[in-house]
């Protein structure tokens, strides 16, 4: 790698951030539109129930819907806040 390509890498700007953000948001939106219509509301309801017990932010709950051949899977992942010591 010559000094020129090194120089090019150093300049890597906001496009990288743009790509990462897009990959995440589009992955979410694709899941929403491939799943059943109730999915967004289900996610909001689940959030509300969990918030009765622990303080969580939106991105700590991940609801995924996957179509299988025999049955569909609804996967729920909740990242709980750090334990207090």
């Amino acid at each position: 790698m010559g000094w020129f390509s090194y120089f090019k890498q150093e300049k890597a700007g906001s496009a990288k951030v743009a790509k990462e953000r897009l990959q995440i948001v589009i992955a979410h939106e694709r899941l929403d539109r491939n799943g059943p219509e109730y999915l967004p509301q289900l996610r909001r309801d689940i959030m509300e129930v969990i918030r009765k017990y622990v303080a969580i932010t939106d991105d700590q709950v991940n609801v995924q819907y996957e179509k299988g051949s025999d049955f569909d899977v609804l996967e729920l992942n909740i990242a709980l806040p750090d334990r207090e010591h």
């Binding site: 090019k8 300049k11 890597a12 700007g13 496009a15 990288k16 743009a18 790509k19 897009l22």
Partner: peptide
Amino acid sequence: VQSGEMLSMED
């Protein structure tokens, strides 16, 4: 794109 300010075709 080369200067990293714009999403590339590959991206």
